[in-house]
Every structure is written in structure tokens, then in C-alpha cells.
Design a protein around this nucleic acid. Structure first.
Length: 573
RNA sequence: CGGGGCGUAGCGCAGUUGGUAGCGCGCGACGUUUGGGACGUUGAGGUCGCAGGUUCGAAUCCUGUCGCCCCGACCA
């Protein structure tokens, strides 16, 4: 491919709209252009990277006999109503001329399950693995970070269909293995973290996370045993000794009310009383399925609403509005406390068990209690793990090391679905015994377009992108330094043809530009190997350089160049 | 949806007390240059997001509206 005939609109300046490095580089290097918030065109280079990613994935799917299909983007309302997902808030809805209603596909569980219920009727049809890789549409409340969270994106989605849970577990491991291979091949380090399945499924599920400061999620990692979990999912371990023993009471100071005018937040109260947040107890009033409940956590902790929802088995859960809070506590928001709250379920986080003489709201305006103690001043209805895990918490797996935290970009999420979709949609198969049983399913998604961003966040320098060979838009760029020198042009063309003949994706920079511009662009777009045809040619050599290695430039005989490059690419893969 | 910020040439930005719009880069032409984003000459390119209003006069002041970015909520 000749650069002069291709389309790579690079930018010199950083577009003002881009904050993330990946976003800046995707725009500057001419990989994507924005059409609207969260809606992007993939330019030729961006599309090539997507295709490279897909081809590695397809290869891994072939290896486990997972078959590709193409599925509709228009999903009829009736089908989504079968699983209660027509009214999911991110669904784009539209009507046809007969006023029939459709959703733009935001995921494909239902369409897949529909195929299964039609054509997987017998135990002889199972297990089966299928996938599709298409554009999905979600009306995201807030698209962000360039390609990190968009409203229209490419998602690679595999699905497994099994007779029973044991089969589902086998399929799950198969897909997980294939994805592990995939990430290894594209040289993207990922952490496999336990995750919350959200509404997709509450069985086993894992996220593939790329550790990055720009990630949207917090991951907790154990440096000892390798355990990893999304913070929203991570269990907080409380030692048995703490759980079983009653709070000690010697040293308790007398309960005392203090004036805290205007101090509504934890920080304000702590500041006013000259103490730190971990001596405070935060009292939050939630409404679960219409019933108010009080929740207590240490001042420096956050309530984990996922855990709370599970504990309460609640369909809907949210913080009470200020009117409700005032009605229940008799005080404005910010002064709620556990002392004196009656007739309300009072759930305390386990961490309160070790707290003594703490501070809490007094249920009246501008006042807090100090020296509050469990048992004496109030008793929670129950203790439970209801807070968000944080760094320095004990690893719930090996129970010895303290967890560390990191930010992560979720590039993949795999779920055991069980019969969550097959049961309501009637996707049953006939057992050998003649009994009808719901198919046990799994779903395995990888965000392709988000991978573009994650790969760049993970691999770039001040000059631009550094693509791994497996996903680079081109493996090699040949820079002809001066195109008015026919010998240089000829040598560049010959090397280009030789590499192409050997199956190498090669870009020949034959533009009528100064060498400096070509070097800058080559670095910016991140081609892994650069060959410069220039002043060395008089001595029969060309310069070969590896993008990720700034000191790697070396001269090689022009006759050997093709061989050298092919060998180099093999080393880099 | 709440909070904050920004909409002026393709990109990055300036524009004073309101007086009819400018800089850098990029783009076209010509010449000189040619291994890390060259230089000179010259040229093209903007209903100042949109709609009202105030005013003799609005990029500038007021109201509304649309769009974009960031933080939060949300994230099937």
C-alpha cells in the first residue's frame, strides 16, 4: 500500500475535545473521527486494527469450534418483552411504517436464545458454541473517554449452550481459555477479576480488565495469591473473632450531644470536631421496594448498594429523598443517627463491631452525638458486609495478604447465564429420558472498539501509538526519505513488493514530504517496524528500526532487508 | 439527570470600555530546501453554534435553545 494513495489524515495539534491519551492519539493519528457524542467513524487505519483484532479472535474461536453467525440489529419488541428487557433504559427504540416497534440491538442474548429454542431441541444438539460480532447500540447516559464508552460500538459476543451446569462450566472454561489466548496474542496484559453480573446474571462471571489510570472501575488485587475482583463485587473479610465476640464495654465514655451547626457531611463533622472520618458512623436511609431501612457504615467507607440489594433481596433500592429522611429521623439530611431510630430495620456494616466511642448524627438539626457505643446506646437489627471493599482490606481468597487497588478498563466480561434467558423464553431441549429441560447458557463478550482505546492506553509514548504486531494496521512502514531520488524510490518499491509477496502488511511512504514529517507520522501511527531508505543506500544499506525500541535502529544490507524484517516481525510477535 | 467548562477559518487559539474579526498550524500557487513536523513570496478560507431581544451599531450585553467536553449519578 502506498501512503500517497491511502487515507491517513494526521493532526499536528491535540484536538481540544480529547482528554484521554488514547482518544488524542486515535484522533491525531487518523484512526477515528467523531460524528456525534459517542458515535465514531473508523477511518482506514482504525478499521484495519479492528479487523486484525477480529481475525485473531476468529482464529481462537475456530480452535474451540465456536461458529460465527450474523444476527439482526432490529429486535422486535415482543421478543424483548419475553425477558422483560424492552424497558431497559439504554435501549434505542423505533417504529416502522406500520408502527411495529423495534429496539436497536444492545446485546444479543434474546436473539441467540431464540435460535436455540428453535433449533436446539435434543440433547444430541448440545453442547454448542456460537458467536457474532456486530455493532451494538446503547443510549448511554454519558459517553466518555473517546472510544472507552460510546453509544454505538462493536462487540464480539460468544454464547454457549449446554445440557446442564457441569457442561456450562466446561464451556465457560473453554471460552475463558480462548480469551486468555487472545489477549496474550495481542500482547495486552489483562487481569481476570471476579465481577458483579448486574442484571445480566448473578452466577459466576469475570471481567477482563486492563489496568490503567483512565479506567472506569476500581480493581482490588492480592499480591500474594493473585486474587482479583472488581471493588463493587469484592467481599470484605471480617475475622471470626470480631464477628463472634460482643463489643467490649470497658473504657466507654458517656454519651454526649455536641453542637455541629451546618456540618452535614462526614468531612465537615470530622473537621469541626477535630477528628478523622474513621471515628464517625455514617447513617444512610435507603428505601428498598418502598420500605425505608437505615444503613450504618464507618465514615470513611462507602455503602455497596449491590451487596445491600442482595441482602435485602430488593427489586428497587435507592437513597431516600430528603422528605423521607426528615420524616423518619426528625432532622434535616446530614444529621441522621442510629441512636433513637425506632421501628426501622437497622443494618450495620461488620466494621462497626470494632468501633468504640464513635460519632454519629443526633437526629436533630445541627447536633451530633459523641462517644456513641454499640449495645449501650443502640443495637443494630443485624450486622453484615455491606460496604465497598478498599485497598488494605484482607484478601478474601488467601486471607493473609492485604489487597491493593488499581483502576481498570473493562475489555471483556464473561457470564454463566444458567437458564436466565432460556427459561423465560422456553428454550428447552429434550433429555434422553424424554424430559424437557432449559438449556444452560453462557455469554462471553469482548468490546472491540473499546479495545482500541485500551491497547493505546497500555502502549504509547510521547511520539505516538506503539501497536503490537498482531493488531497493527500495518506491520512495516517503508520510509523513502527523498522521492526525487529515483534509486531510493525504486529500492523502496522493491522492498515493498518483496514483503507483500511474503504476506507482510506493508505501507510505503512515498509522499513528497520531508523526511522529518514521515518519521513523525510513522511514530504517531505506531507501525511496529520502520525501514528507512535513505542515505545508506549509496553503501547498499537501509535502516531498520523497531518502534517500541528507540535505540534499535541499525543498518542492514538492502538485499537482506526483506529477510531481516520478516525475522524481526517474528521476534516481535 | 445534577455540577462545572467550552462553542470564533480544517485544527489549536486571541478578540480590550459594544464600532462590523485576527494569530499560529494546516491548505493552494511559485521558488529555494530535503534524515526528526523547513524557509521566502503570494493566495484562498469565517452568516463568530442557532433563534430572539437591547442598541444608531452585538463575536462582545440579555433571554432562550442546540451541541460538545469533564466530574458525579448511571453503565444489561
Amino acid at each position: 500500500m502506498k501512503y500517497s494513495e491511502y487515507f491517513i489524515p494526521t493532526l499536528r495539534d491535540v484536538p481540544a475535545e480529547a482528554e484521554l491519551v488514547s482518544h488524542q492519539l486515535l484522533l491525531r493519528a487518523g484512526f477515528v473521527r467523531k460524528l456525534s457524542a459517542g458515535v465514531y467513524t473508523l477511518l482506514p487505519l482504525g478499521w484495519r486494527v479492528v479487523q486484525k483484532i477480529e481475525s485473531v479472535l476468529r482464529d481462537e474461536m475456530d480452535a474451540i469450534a465456536c461458529a460465527e453467525m450474523r444476527m439482526p440489529t432490529l429486535h422486535p419488541r415482543e421478543m424483548l418483552e419475553e425477558t422483560g428487557r424492552w424497558n431497559v433504559d439504554v435501549v434505542y427504540k423505533l417504529q416502522d411504517r406500520r408502527e411495529a416497534e423495534f429496539a436497536l440491538g444492545f446485546t444479543h442474548e434474546e436473539v441467540m436464545t431464540d435460535i436455540a429454542r428453535r433449533d436446539m431441541r435434543s440433547w444430541r444438539d448440545l453442547p454448542r458454541l456460537l458467536y457474532q460480532n456486530q455493532t451494538k447500540f446503547r443510549d448511554e447516559p454519558r459517553p466518555r473517554g473517546g472510544m472507552i464508552r460510546t453509544r454505538e460500538f462493536i462487540m464480539f459476543d460468544a454464547y454457549s449452550f449446554d445440557r446442564d451446569e457441569a457442561g456450562m462450566d466446561v464451556s465457560y472454561q473453554k471460552l475463558k481459555g480462548a480469551y486468555d489466548n487472545f489477549f496474550a496474542r495481542i500482547q495486552l496484559p489483562v487481569v481476570t477479576a471476579e465481577a458483579d453480573g448486574g442484571a445480566i446474571g448473578d452466577l459466576d462471571n469475570h471481567e477482563f480488565m486492563v489496568l490503567s489510570e483512565s479506567g472506569e472501575d476500581t480493581i482490588l488485587l492480592c499480591p500474594n495469591c493473585g486474587y482479583a475482583a472488581n471493588a463493587e463485587r469484592c467481599t470484605v473479610l471480617t475475622p471470626e473473632s470480631v464477628l463472634s465476640s460482643a463489643p467490649a464495654s470497658n473504657g466507654d465514655k458517656p454519651l454526649e450531644m455536641v453542637s455541629t451547626p451546618g456540618a452535614r457531611t462526614i468531612d465537615e463533622v470530622a473537621g469541626l470536631l477535630g477528628t478523622s472520618a474513621n471515628n464517625l458512623v455514617k447513617t444512610l436511609i435507603y428505601v428498598a421496594d418502598g420500605t425505608p431501612v437505615a444503613v450504618l457504615v464507618r465514615g470513611d467507607h462507602e455503602v455497596n448498594e449491590i451487596k445491600l440489594r442482595r441482602l435485602l433481596k430488593a427489586e428497587s433500592l435507592g437513597l431516600a429523598d430528603s422528605a423521607t429522611v426528615e420524616r423518619i429521623t426528625g432532622a434535616p439530611v446530614g444529621f441522621a443517627g442510629p441512636v433513637g431510630v425506632i421501628g426501622l430495620r437497622l443494618i450495620a456494616d461488620n466494621s462497626l463491631l470494632t468501633m468504640r466511642n464513635f460519632i454519629a448524627g443526633a437526629n436533630q438539626a445541627d447536633a451530633h452525638y459523641v462517644h456513641v457505643n454499640l449495645g449501650r446506646d443502640f443495637s443494630p437489627t443485624e450486622y453484615a458486609d455491606i460496604r465497598v471493599a478498599v485497598a488494605k482490606d484482607l484478601c478474601p481468597s488467601c486471607r493473609t495478604e492485604k489487597l491493593e487497588d488499581a483502576r481498570g478498563i473493562e475489555v471483556g466480561h464473561i457470564f454463566k447465564l444458567g437458564s436466565k434467558y432460556s427459561a423465560p423464553m422456553g428454550a428447552n431441549y429434550t433429555e434422553e429420558s424424554g424430559a424437557a429441560k432449559p438449556i444452560q447458557m453462557g455469554s462471553y463478550g469482548i468490546g472491540i472498539t473499546r479495545l482500541l482505546a485500551a491497547l493505546i492506553e497500555n502502549s504509547h509514548d510521547k511520539d505516538g501509538i506503539i501497536w503490537p504486531v498482531a493488531v497493527a494496521p500495518f506491520s512495516v512502514i517503508i520510509v523513502v526519505t527523498y522521492i526525487k531520488d529515483e534509486a531510493l524510490v525504486k529500492a523502496g518499491q522493491e522492498l515493498h513488493d518483496a514483503l507483500r509477496a511474503r504476506g507482510v502488511d506493508v505501507l510505503l511512504d512515498d509522499r513528497d514530504e520531508r523526511a522529518g514529517i514521515k518519521f513523525k507520522d510513522a511514530d504517531l501511527i505506531g507501525i511496529p517496524v520502520r525501514v528507512v531508505i535513505g542515505k545508506g543506500l549509496a553503501n547498499g544499506t537501509v535502516e531498520i528500526k523497531v518502534r517500541k525500541n528507540s535505540n534499535s535502529a541499525r543498518e542492514a544490507p538492502v538485499a537482506e532487508a526483506a529477510n531481516t524484517v520478516v525475522a524481526l516481525l517474528s521476534d516481535l510477535s
